[in-house]
Design a protein around this nucleic acid. Structure first.
Lengths: 147, 147
DNA sequence: GGAAATAATGTCAATAAGTGTCAGTTTGTG
DNA sequence: CACAAACTGACACTTATTGACATTATTTCC
């Protein structure tokens, strides 16, 4: 599982060092695609394959399904680490996420996200008050477990 | 269960010795995440897994669910003890909780909390009068239990 | 097709961050 | 009082990340 947040820099050519702890979980590379909130989402191969298998099963006669496949495959990059543990993020993905000279890499359980620092600051500020998530906490019943 | 409070120091690199009695309960490490009141909360793995399992089941298309996952995984660290019983608390967590050269570690039943000493002093001052909690005591019927 | 421009990849060394170990002090215990 | 365990501070060492620059591919344009 991917946890925590790391600010890393992007070099002049668009390369990004993935935190070494994350790399250990995905030594054979990863998929990076558009995220839902102007960020990028990085998936281990096994996770992404679930998504793509689903997409590949969809009928080709349905326009909606065709569009979804285009969205998915067209906006994903399959990336490998170089000898320094870096990946080159394609320009179209950097532009989408407004990524320039540094990013914040954020653990998200079975995947992780890549954010422009300014956008992540806004995002995390909005969500990092635990009491905002009261409904979720209550659904889990953490504090009353064991009674 | 985790009981009591301990003031421990943090070394120059951000490492904290966990009280040996606590360590015995969680020899295989712990999760540390943002707490509700500008503190950090430390969960044994079994407890945290309940929370993360819940989060992993949520749909990705709902913004509220995405935010909760980001809050949860992005603001958590998975930590292990070194040979001296210390953990390294990542900088982003230390900053959130305004932790500098020492902390107070406070037992909280199935989890424990890590506080900046100044914040804990204020907090504990507010809560440590037992009569403040009269309604809770009554709800539990402690004095008549066992009849 | 070939030269120039652009993009991608590779390598190295400096710095910063993290980890390991030892020994001293304190605290609690027999 | 002596001993053992727990915690701490200091220091040495290792690993991770970055910036800079060199090299190789790929594309573009004449």
């Amino acid at each position: 599982m991917f946890f925590g947040q790391y600010e890393h820099s992007i070099d002049a050519k668009g390369r990004l060092t993935i935190p070494s702890g994350f790399r250990e979980l995905i030594p054979d590379g990863l998929y990076v695609m558009l995220g839902f909130d102007h960020n990028l989402t990085a998936y281990p191969k096994a996770v992404y394959e679930q998504i793509s298998n689903h997409a590949n099963k969809m009928t080709i006669t349905d326009k909606d399904a065709r569009d979804f496949r285009r969205f998915l495959f067209g906006n994903t990059a399959e990336l490998y680490f170089d000898s320094m543990g870096r990946i080159l993020i394609p320009a179209f993905l950097r532009e989408f996420a407004k990524i320039d000279s540094s990013v914040v890499i954020v653990g998200a359980g079975d995947s992780f996200e890549i954010w422009a620092p300014e956008l992540w600051a806004v995002q995390n500020e909005q969500i990092k008050d635990p009491s905002l998530h009261a409904t979720h906490w209550e659904a889990m019943n953490v504090s009353t477990r064991g009674d």
